[in-house]
Computed example of a mutant assay.
Amino acid sequence: MGHDEAFGALQGLRVIELGQLIAGPFCGQLMADHGAEVIKVEQPGLGDPMREWGRNKPVWWSVIARNKKSVTLNLRTKDGQDLLRELVARTDFLIENFRAGTLEKWGLGYDELSKINPGLIMIRVSGYGQTGPYSPRAGYGSIGEAMGGMRNLAGDPGTPPSRVGLSIGDSLAATMACLGAVMALHRRHLTGRGQVIDSAIYEAVLAMMESTIPEYTEANFIRERTGAVLPNVSPSNVYPTSDGDILIAANQDSVFGRLCEAMGKPELAVDPRYATHTARGKHQEELDALIGEWTKDFPAKYLADLMEENGVPAGKIYKAPDMMADEHFKARDAIVHMPHPDFANIHMQNVFPRLSETPGKIAWVGEPLGAHNEEIYGGLLGKSDEERAALEAAGTI
């Protein structure tokens, strides 16, 4: 698909993406996946550090910058700031994830930009939000995960708090920001005016914290790490097999009964220690030990098939090779192969969620730095070849 072919629910909308790394750019990826024209603004000669990220090969850029148009622009100069104002006059959204106050320092805060474009929706992703005593601080996703309460619950109780293995705080804040942007777009349809989306990483994490706050304020209970299980939800755990691990979730009464039948131990379903949700919760450790003693002698695939036959949710703990080989992933094109000038075998996750009438798609992978300078500055802004050459010579683009 070419760069100008329309697709997706957000076709016809333009996004200017400032900032770098994950918290802002993942919001831009979500919007680009669904057809918005996302113009990725990067520092001349440097670009987003994400261009260098990836284990063994720098492949992450191919994902987080897919469907985006790359331009270079030095926002620390007056000419660069003026160019951005010209772009803002022609856009619907502006995404930024600088430290709070940075755009205001450059004369590019919402008060100024909304004078140029009253319908502008500014999407601001930061560690601590745009207000409050911590707002000026640098805030990475890991700090937001800790402050929002997630880190304290991740890992085994016998070890220090773990990280999930993903930049989940950044991605959550970006997803919240994208949701807020679509809300603001609906409001703009009614009023004609844009607004600011303030998505803080610690608050995006806090929003996922279920009932941990009222558990403390009302019941004086502080939830702590519990490893692979949720306390009092049993059985639902990772169990050993003869060739790896399997996750079995049979905590509902009827499902537990089917698990007992599959195990050849139907008597467990009526045993007073295990017959009810509450009883199983009280005897969680001994029930897990009993199930693990049964599973350890069978291959994981045999157990997975047996659980399927008996209507018990179960599955392997997937890694990338398992995902690539799985028939369900293949049937739904959950992972797709993309043409790339440097990486012949690059695969990546597809576009989610799936929309029935206006599906998103991956039209192209992350582009080289400044690949669309001519299209955006020459075509969209109407700068002549001479003007663009002068801007380039000055280090503005």
Rank of each mutant, 00 (worst) to 15 (best):
M1Y: 10
M1R: 06
G2F: 10
G2Y: 05
E5P: 07
A6K: 15
A9W: 08
L10A: 10
L10C: 12
Q11M: 04
Q11S: 13
G12E: 02
L13W: 07
L13N: 02
L13K: 08
R14L: 14
R14D: 08
R14F: 08
I16P: 00
I16V: 14
I16M: 06
E17S: 12
L18N: 01
L18A: 10
G19S: 15
Q20M: 12
L21A: 15
A23V: 05
G24T: 08
G24F: 12
G28P: 11
L30Q: 15
A32N: 10
D33H: 15
D33I: 14
H34S: 11
G35W: 04
A36S: 10
E37Y: 02
V38T: 08
V38S: 10
I39D: 00
K40G: 03
K40E: 04
E42S: 08
P44V: 11
P44F: 03
G45W: 06
G45I: 12
G45V: 12
G45D: 03
L46P: 13
G47A: 02
G47S: 03
D48R: 05
M50T: 14
M50G: 13
E52A: 14
E52K: 13
E52M: 12
R55K: 13
R55N: 03
K57M: 14
K57N: 09
P58Y: 05
W60K: 02
V63L: 08
I64H: 04
A65E: 03
A65K: 05
R66H: 11
R66S: 08
R66N: 07
K68Y: 09
K68T: 01
K69T: 02
K69A: 02
V71S: 03
T72Q: 06
T72E: 07
L73R: 06
N74K: 08
L75D: 13
L75H: 12
L75C: 04
T77F: 01
T77N: 07
D79W: 00
D79N: 12
G80K: 13
Q81Y: 01
D82H: 07
D82Y: 02
L83E: 06
L84R: 09
R85A: 04
E86Y: 04
E86N: 04
E86V: 07
V88N: 01
V88K: 02
A89Q: 11
